[in-house]
């Protein structure tokens, strides 16, 4: 495939799209319509709609990938995997049939969703509590100065979040409030500012075609060109 199709056209598309979206956010460019909306607004809205449509197409691509991968597992009877693959494909078919037949807002679909995915999703999320416990057990050890700071602040946060402790030991709440208001907020602001700057620099590199990691890397021959 030529360099033009593989690199230059995608980079030009990224540049034009990003520039339009930025212009729409920062500027009110004439001509404006009767409601005072810039000409860039409907263009950006269209671009966003294209994004939604492309995402929907991609979902189909994802579904095909799922079917191919799990059909292979079933036909090869992959150890510890194939029964789950059967179950997965059955559920995809069941949800699709009920969704298409009754509609995604129907009581039938809601029942199916609430009694399967909703319950499972809440369970997986809740299991986080257990994972955190084992993580904390290993991590909060006074190995060095940094770890002691983590241990002390973590301990205070734990105690503050135990309602009965917070009632009987109000000083824990005061210390926790100070930790949240000063060191935590300052650190989070620092992370936010630096992350935003990093994202801007990445955006500039991407828009100007200097960073092409998302298109695959340049070969030495392409770099030379």
């Amino acid at each position: 495939m030529s360099l033009l199709i593989r690199r230059q056209i995608p980079i030009a598309l990224v540049f034009i799209t990003a520039l339009l979206i930025m212009m729409d956010y920062f500027l009110k460019l004439p001509p404006l319509d009767a409601r005072g909306v810039s000409w860039t607004s409907p263009v950006v809205k269209d671009l966003q709609n294209w994004g939604v449509i492309l995402t929907a197409f991609a979902l189909g691509f994802g579904a095909v990938n799922l079917f191919i991968l799990h059909s292979r597992h079933i036909s090869r009877r992959t150890v510890k995997q194939w029964p789950f693959s059967v179950w997965l494909l059955l559920m995809i078919i069941l949800f699709t049939v009920v969704g298409v037949s009754y509609g995604a807002t129907s009581p039938e679909y809601s029942w199916l969703y609430n009694s399967s995915y909703f319950a499972l999703s809440a369970t997986v999320y809740s299991s986080l509590g257990f994972y955190m416990t084992s993580g904390i057990y290993r991590a909060l050890r006074a190995r060095n100065v940094d770890a002691v700071i983590l241990l002390v602040t973590g301990g205070i946060a734990l105690l503050k979040n135990a309602p009965a402790v917070a009632v009987n030991a109000p000083f824990v709440v005061s210390i926790d409030s100070w930790l949240n208001a000063i060191p935590t907020t300052s650190a989070m602001r620092g992370i936010m500012i630096s992350a935003a700057l990093g994202a801007i620099a990445l955006g500039i590199r991407t828009m100007t075609g200097k960073e092409t990691g998302f298109l695959g890397r340049l070969t030495e021959a392409e770099k030379g060109g």
Partner: peptide, 21 residues
């Protein structure tokens, strides 16, 4: 639940540190 579980985790942390030292 929150009071009991948080206190239990504090106990875990204490036990972990005693074991470490």
């Amino acid at each position: 639940v929150m009071t009991l579980t948080h206190l239990l985790i504090v106990v875990y942390v204490i036990v972990g540190n005693i074991a470490y030292y």
